[in-house]
Design a protein around this nucleic acid. Structure first.
Lengths: 206, 206
DNA sequence: TATTTGAATGACCGGGCGGTCACAATCGAC
DNA sequence: GTCGATTGTGACCGCCCGGTCATTCAAATA
């Protein structure tokens, strides 16, 4: 990002950020069009490329902003993370959904950031935020003494489960748009599923 | 697909199918280029658009072919599906990975078909193959008498888990390319995780 | 008011896209 | 060998892309 962008009035900066965030969130990096971004932001194309030297740089800037918004929230939750794995998943999911409730635009951009996208962008994101993303580690310091099986198996299950949850949340957020209702419905379902995971599917043996 | 395509020598048809399948599998519908497809297939662009009236039609044709390849395999497995949900997941996952082993190209195209892609293509795929895809229903006829909680909670957990498994498999197949080894490693991990799901994470209460 | 100066603009560039079409090549019938 | 029909070809079309830059505009200085 160029200094000239930093010097811009806040309102104009906001318009540009919002337009770009929205476009990237909806279409992904490759599908996003700088023409649509400038039209939505109400600026000329020349200006956009004075503020940011390339589409890549604009995307990276938004990624930085998004991480700066999200990481502190996540860290504050993680600081108080319980050692029980199921509780941990519950709290983590709640943190993620809270981020969505507070700012859907950042949330959807963030989710898009983590998967599909051009290779060189993926690598740059990882170089810049890999450590911070690693911070969202669900597994360190878990109390595994009561696990029936190797901890790594448990972690694998949870990794898979979380991938599914992430996808479910992403789909939900593109349909339901009352954040309060969405959160309530989601947390209820998550609770029963976590209970299930903890105790297994079946009643204990006779 | 035009009749002129049907009349083509099998070897030429195969070249075109393989080139297109590969391109779509690698880049998705939007990212795929008909220019690269004709170059890889060794035909002219004019020919491709004589055989198929549009990129859309080519994609739909490949989807039909892929489904014709995959559905019978899935159905034969489903016919013998046990009523126990965990066994069922195991068998289903094995069926999917077997499809990958037998034909990686179809497999990756198929996986890409199910998510990312242009809207109108998604809808056409669902109109044509929605029912067949519904056939891969894991949940009908499950023995839920011993479930501790409502069946729908169990099914939700499994839906999430499967989304995670699907993603894991997709990532694995882009790194490891000895199908035999891949299958073995995956099935081992799947087994312990299924056991976990069945009995829960923790040892039974003291 | 005239002059300077930095920001804003949008026509324009080269390139890739999906798709077309006038023409060339090929083949079978006689 | 000739001729009509079918198939194959690639230059070309209009469009949109990311990115550039000569020009215009607006505000501060003198």
């Amino acid at each position: 990002m160029n200094d000239s962008f930093r010097r811009l009035p806040d309102e104009k900066k906001r318009r540009i950020r919002d337009a770009a965030l929205e476009e990237f969130a909806q279409r992904g990096f490759d599908g996003a069009s700088t023409n649509r971004i400038v039209a939505a932001a109400g600026i000329s194309k020349g200006s956009l490329f004075k503020y940011f030297s390339s589409k890549d740089e604009l995307y990276i800037y938004l990624a930085d902003e998004t991480m700066a918004e999200i990481i502190p929230i996540m860290k504050s939750r993680i600081a108080a993370l319980p050692s029980d794995i199921a509780e941990r998943i519950g709290l983590m999911s709640e943190a993620i959904i809270d981020i969505y409730v507070a700012n859907p635009r950042y949330y959807r951009f963030f989710m898009g950031m983590l998967d599909a996208g051009a290779r060189h962008i993926q690598m740059e994101i990882m170089k810049r935020h890999g450590e911070a993303l690693g911070f969202m580690d669900l597994f360190s310091g878990v109390d595994d003494r009561r696990f029936r099986l190797p901890a790594e198996s448990v972690f694998l299950l949870i990794k898979w489960l979380f991938a599914g949850i992430k996808q479910e949340l992403f789909e939900l957020t593109s349909v339901q748009n009352d954040p309060g209702l969405l959160k309530q419905g989601f947390m209820e379902r998550l609770d029963t599923v976590l209970d299930l995971m903890e105790h297994g599917i079946y009643r204990s043996e006779a």
